[in-house]
């Protein structure tokens, strides 16, 4: 009898990949600006991942070695995602020398996106929101 494809195991793995991939491609890039809480606590992705793991578990119980390997891969993926969310992205150096509340910030002049110099002192007289970010490299 030919081997039947274990669709539950396949669906579990595909859903796991979609759950993790969509955090970076959809939640962070597209939804993040409007729904930052979804980026901070990725409930949507975690629920999808939970469903994916459940499918994997069911597929592995009913299936043979490939389905068990797929479930193992899905579990590894979930572990890596959790590590990224709460481990890796928290590995930031302490900012002990950053200006504190009540301190004046150092002045500087840098080129804007048109290549024109902009001096921080030129903005005096108005409140300024100064944002340092990691970049798009």
């Amino acid at each position: 009898m030919p081997a039947r494809r274990n669709w539950t195991a396949v669906a579990g793995l595909l859903l796991g990949l979609a759950a993790v991939g969509s955090y970076f491609t959809v939640v962070t890039r597209e939804l993040g600006p409007r729904f930052p809480w979804l980026r901070d606590v990725p409930l949507l992705n975690l629920v999808l991942l939970a469903v994916a793991l459940w499918l994997s578990w069911r597929g592995a119980r009913a299936g043979r070695m490939p389905a068990r390997l797929a479930a193992l891969a899905n579990l590894g993926l979930a572990g890596l995602f959790a590590f990224y969310l709460w481990g890796f992205s928290s590995w930031l150096p302490p900012a002990l020398a950053a200006p504190r509340v009540g301190q004046a910030v150092p002045d500087f002049t840098l080129a804007d996106q048109r290549g024109e110099p902009l001096a921080l002192t030129g903005l005096r007289g108005a409140p300024v929101v100064l944002v340092f970010y990691r970049g798009f490299w």
Binding site: V105, V129, L130, F132, R134, W137
Partner: peptide, 9 residues
């Protein structure tokens, strides 16, 4: 790179 930070001046 820079670590993320936001200041209100």
């Amino acid at each position: 790179i820079a670590r993320p930070a936001t200041f209100v001046l």
